[in-house]
Amino acid sequence: MTKSEALTRGVFAFSSIILRSFYFEPVEKGLKFAANAIESRSFMKRFLPFLIIAIVGLLTIGIATAVYKVKMQPAPAGATTGASPASGEMTKPPAAAAEEQKDSQGWHVRGPAKAPLLLEIYGDFQCPSCAVASKAIDQLQAEFKDKIKVVFHEFPLSMHQHAVRAAEAAEAAGLQGKFWEMHDALYDYQPVWSHTTNPGFLFDSYAGSMGLDLARFRADRQSSDIEGKVIEDGNAGLLRGVRNTPTIFINGQHAKGAITKDKLREAIEAALAKQKS
């Protein structure tokens, strides 16, 4: 207190000397008044708490908006850098085996049509273990070269808030021939869109980055046709005994418990050996 008093007095004295030398009395009087006001305790008591509150409030809002902006900005950038190794992996299987979008039954197929092994997966885009299984399947498809074709069936679980909308987005992208691109994007960015209130915007942005006709995509993913297709897929799965995700069928046989990469490889090898004999 005495230090700050001495300081203010010093500053005041210094400025008053300068001002006096210029004969600038009104300003001098004003300064005197301000110095007295600052020195008096009532001023501190009156304004300091509000100053502290205002500073803390502004700091909170400032830091929050800064963090929000930073988080929202690199989301696409960070996602692309994060996805670049992943997409490198992903583009391999389709490149190795000319990708087909749909077969005669209207299924989404990835892999050569004449591949000896048919792997069907019932997936939910919001289910984390489905994302893991999907990655494993992509790697195995690259590993087994032309021997595997993969079919994806929609099986959105009701426990996942946005699973149906994600399935509809994938199907809508499929109408423009980009089902698998959307499939990969939905799994890659699952942690991002899963917990937003309105994932529709994100789905649109993924579609936009794939070069889809956005107006059509938006209309399609909300259409009753697509809604019906997703329900149909789910019902077909229920009839086949699918209850949770991911459920995988290898050559029509339910591969129970084969969700990890190693278990899946075993199941695939067993199925291939069976065909040879």
Binding site: A64, V67, Y68, K71, M72, A75, P191, V192, W193, S194, H195, T196
Partner: peptide, 10 residues
């Protein structure tokens, strides 16, 4: 709040 708004579940 920020985590919810950005949908970041990290």
């Amino acid at each position: 709040t920020i985590a919810h708004l950005t949908g970041d579940d990290a």
